[in-house]
Amino acid sequence: MSKISNLTAVVIMSLVGTTTSAAAETAEDKIARAMSAAPSDISDDARIMDVDGTILREGSNGWVCLPGIGLIPGDQHPMCNDAVWMKWMTAAGSGSAFSTDVVGVSYMLMGDAMVNNDDPMATDPNGGGVWVQEGPHTMMLFPNMDMLADLPRDPFAGGPYVMWGETPLAHVMLPVEAKTAP
């Protein structure tokens, strides 16, 4: 019986060790995931920043790529942002107002987490609203929300749509793949 107990303990410890080492992600892993968010002519020279703000690699082209979205705890969907989107991320994270005088662009070619298309603060998919998990896409910010008046707010209408349209965090989603409503 003690041999079985010892064997069981060894197997459990091995599994725990494997799980622990798999969970410990290297900076190189995070950099590779962050770079997958945008075309290489953007990500190759982008600054790579971890979700906690740690710079993993300096860049030279003004773009910032992240291995996940810090606004969604535990999210590992990478994104690459221009300076306007980094300002937007700061505003969204702090709950402060956002505005821009120029168009902003963000790439999320590895997709996105499930979010409420109407309410950026919603966390429960069972709490109502239209929830969508977008595949590969780009996002755009505009200085004048009137420019978005004719775009649908329905993420399942096909083509570009407005996310969070009735909030200061409104932006246009440009899907790359088709999706179907749940």
Rank of each mutant, 00 (worst) to 15 (best):
M1N: 12
S5Q: 11
S5G: 15
L7R: 08
V10I: 04
V11M: 12
V11R: 11
I12E: 07
M13G: 10
L15Q: 15
V16W: 08
V16D: 14
V16R: 06
T19D: 14
S21A: 15
S21L: 15
S21G: 15
A23C: 13
A23L: 13
A24C: 14
E25Q: 06
E25P: 01
A27L: 05
D29G: 06
D29Q: 06
D29S: 12
K30T: 00
I31M: 01
I31N: 00
R33N: 06
A34F: 01
A37L: 07
A37H: 04
A38V: 02
I42S: 13
I42E: 09
S43R: 00
S43V: 01
D44K: 07
D45L: 05
A46N: 02
I48M: 00
I48A: 00
M49A: 05
D50A: 05
V51F: 04
D52H: 03
T54G: 08
I55W: 08
R57M: 05
G59K: 07
G59A: 08
G62K: 05
V64E: 09
C65G: 01
L66R: 04
P67W: 00
G68M: 02
G68Q: 02
G70N: 03
L71R: 11
D75W: 04
N81M: 15
D82C: 03
D82I: 01
V84C: 02
K87D: 15
W88Y: 13
T90V: 11
T90I: 09
A92D: 03
A92P: 01
S94T: 13
S96W: 14
S99L: 15
S99T: 12
D101G: 08
V102G: 13
V102I: 15
G104F: 01
V105Q: 07
V105K: 03
S106Y: 09
S106I: 07
M108L: 12
L109H: 03
M110E: 04
G111T: 01
P120V: 06
P120A: 13
M121N: 13
M121A: 12
A122F: 14
D124W: 09
D124M: 09
P125A: 07
P125V: 09
P125M: 12
G129R: 07
G129M: 15
V130I: 11
E134Q: 08
E134W: 09
E134K: 13
E134A: 10
H137M: 06
H137L: 07
T138V: 12
M139P: 00
M140S: 14
L141Q: 04
P143K: 11
N144R: 02
D146I: 09
D146L: 09
A149M: 05
D150I: 03
P152A: 02
D154L: 08
F156H: 10
G158C: 01
G159M: 10
Y161I: 03
Y161S: 05
V162Y: 02
M163A: 03
W164L: 06
E166C: 06
T167D: 10
T167E: 08
V172E: 09
V172L: 13
M173H: 14
V176I: 11
T180D: 14
A181R: 13
A181V: 10
P182M: 14
